[in-house]
């Protein structure tokens, strides 16, 4: 009995010691929450209250997109690659918070990166069989796979009013996914601070470097390489992130 007590006590002390020394950082869940703003304020859907650099008014009805290939960079050139593909729909609250499948080590990170959309190797027709993801399909006559994103709404100029369907994807085998690089933005993750809030600034889709002319591009751009390229170029500064303590 005495021996057993000694053994249990020793084991307990050992475990506590391991935790305290920090040699092996605890594995934690990584969460991400998605927010969407225009000029820094939360998106107001279905209201013709926004204006682009060209003075064209616009509203937002639909914001749907894929995030994939999330990578976390640790000091010492260690990279943690997360294989998850996550679908976001501003009208589906259950898609606005996500917990990655695998755990990651707590600690200091030098930055992160991810893909807006899907890389060609993962953009394969038929990989999503259930809605809502399956409804992002990109038809075979235009190359197959899936939309990276659908952002839709109404625009109005002094002379006309129409719809815009800011749909991006791989067109006829030419990939336009956006590799978002935030690898020089250090942060620390811990058990009680493991939520990445990823914010999309919608206005930036329509500027820098290309001022988006709703009237010029029209309501249908899926078959338009020039438009797809412009979206890709504008996507560089659309996303920002911050680490927060808990899911909203």
């Amino acid at each position: 009995m005495k021996r057993l007590f000694f053994l249990v006590t020793t084991l307990g002390v050992s475990l506590v010691s391991c935790n305290n020394t920090g040699n092996v950082p605890p594995a934690i869940d990584l969460h991400v929450s998605f927010s969407h703003v225009v000029n820094g304020s939360p998106v107001q859907l279905d209201a013709l209250v926004y204006q682009n650099n060209l003075g064209q008014e616009f509203s937002l009805k639909t914001i749907k997109y894929f995030i994939s290939r999330v990578k976390l960079y640790r000091a010492g050139n260690t990279v943690i690659a997360l294989p998850d593909i996550h679908y976001v729909d501003i009208r589906l609250p259950e898609t606005l918070n996500y917990t990655f499948a695998g755990k990651i080590p707590a600690g200091d990170y030098t930055g992160l990166s991810f893909v807006y959309g899907l890389i060609p190797e993962e953009n394969i027709s038929g990989r999503f069989t259930q809605p809502p993801e399956s409804l992002m399909e990109w038809p075979e006559p235009m190359g197959g796979g899936y939309h990276y994103a659908k952002i839709e709404g109404v625009y109005r100029t002094p002379s006309e009013e129409g719809f815009f369907n800011f749909h991006s994807g791989m067109l006829d085998g030419v990939a336009y996914e956006i590799h978002v690089d935030r690898t020089n933005q250090p942060f620390t993750l811990s058990e009680d601070k493991a939520v990445v809030n990823l914010q999309m600034e919608i206005q930036n889709w329509f500027q820098n470097p290309n001022d988006w002319d709703f009237a010029y591009y029209g309501p249908a751009i899926m078959g338009n390489h020039e438009a797809q390229k412009a979206i890709q170029e504008n996507g560089g500064d659309v996303f920002s992130f911050a680490i927060t303590g808990s899911l909203p």
């Binding site: 399956s134 409804l135 399909e137 006559p141 235009m142 078959g223």
Partner: peptide, 25 residues
């Protein structure tokens, strides 16, 4: 007709989508 259905010229595919020819929305 298939090409019209599945490109934005005809643009049937967004609402009449997937194998089921409907998005159920």
């Amino acid at each position: 007709g298939y090409e019209l259905y599945y490109t934005e010229k005809g643009d049937c595919f967004h609402c009449h989508a997937t194998m089921f020819m409907t998005d159920n929305l």
